[in-house]
Design a protein around this nucleic acid. Structure first.
Lengths: 193, 193
DNA sequence: GATCCCTATTGACCTATGTCAACAGTTTTT
DNA sequence: AAAAACTGTTGACATAGGTCAATAGGGATC
């Protein structure tokens, strides 16, 4: 059950078997069916979740009732509303399973305790967060400098598998464009190729 | 010379005087005049910089020659192109001083060595990076769900001092809108109030 | 196997924001 | 103090992408 996460951690920091065993004690497994929620907008994100299997999305809903997807998380990724998780303020986001999903949850206290018990985890989470920050910066950069079509192509290159697992209108939502726009972009890409 | 950074670190992790002394040895002070560059697009971001005094921006230039500002950094902030700093690949960004600026620089090796010498710095940088990640997420969220005017108002609330220090067209660039658009937004805000 | 829901497509039209150019203050440089 | 560079404003116009509504083909569900 813990193979995926332990191997993920070992990719970033060197831990021994004893430390690995200690880490396992902090997590709570949880399964979600398709369409079940891990977090509802307005609630506090008590957990941050590691995805062992499956796929989820985090999203928010604007004044006009439109959904905007902030993140997709599949195997080997973490997902939460970091702001709500760290501050224990209510979240603006919901997190929903898009497939049968298996998670390992850790709550705020155990997150801190785990780092006290195994200090190398500070380093693990630092590296993880740095990588997320870089990808967020690139996403903003793309939003500011590229057209919708260019951003779509970039996503095709960077996360081709995602496009196979997620309905097209959710890809549009993640890119920050209307589903009709993505449909038209694809049509025109097909014709001009 | 190190008061600002040491007090910034102490706000996030408990360090003693001995550790503080050790930390100081890793930094190189640097001054920049207005309009001088810390990093030029195409070069490798060898340093990450802590701002003791002054103000800088990081920005990229798109196909049409338009500048897009990714970050403003004033006193008590860090600035670099994190991607280039960590991977030692050439950067897509430039970093320029907007005022007389005093920095403390640390290079890639010393960044790692500092964390080996004072392991609490892993925690410090983890917390720092988490906070940056949260603010980036909010910026994307705003870009996706709000109008240009709403994003401008949000910035006015969150960083009022910045608007006093930076020309309006750079605020527009940071918001990802044309300078003319911001001028019109301000005009209309003034009349409807 | 009929119904319902979800998904994608298309057309007609709309709107927020961008573009280009002119102009006028201000600040900086010489 | 003149010239140059920078900054912000305004008007006319252009355009990328959004909105709304109709249609249609799967799956899923009863």
């Amino acid at each position: 059950m813990f193979e995926v996460i332990i191997s993920n951690i070992k990719k970033k920091v060197a831990i021994n078997d004893e430390e690995a065993e200690k880490l396992k004690t902090f997590f709570t497994p949880k399964k979600l069916r398709k369409k079940q929620y891990l977090l509802q907008e307005g609630d506090i994100s008590h957990y941050t979740a590691f995805v062992e299997k499956g796929l989820l999305r985090s999203f928010t809903i604007d004044d006009k009732g439109h959904e905007h997807i902030m993140q997709f998380a599949s195997e080997d990724w973490w997902i939460s509303d970091l702001y709500s998780f760290l501050t224990e303020e209510p979240s603006d986001y919901s997190i929903e399973a898009l497939e049968e999903t298996e998670l390992l949850l850790i709550n705020r206290n155990d997150y801190e305790n785990m780092m006290l018990a195994v200090p190398k985890m500070e380093r693990y989470f630092r590296i993880l967060t740095q990588n997320s920050l870089i990808s967020m910066q690139r996403r903003i950069s793309g939003k500011m400098t590229l057209t919708a079509e260019q951003n779509y192509k970039k996503l095709m290159e960077q996360r081709p598998a995602l496009l196979q697992r997620v309905p097209q209108h959710m890809i549009a939502s993640f890119l920050g464009i209307a589903p009709e726009t993505l449909s038209r972009i694809r049509k025109q890409m097909a014709s001009s190729k």
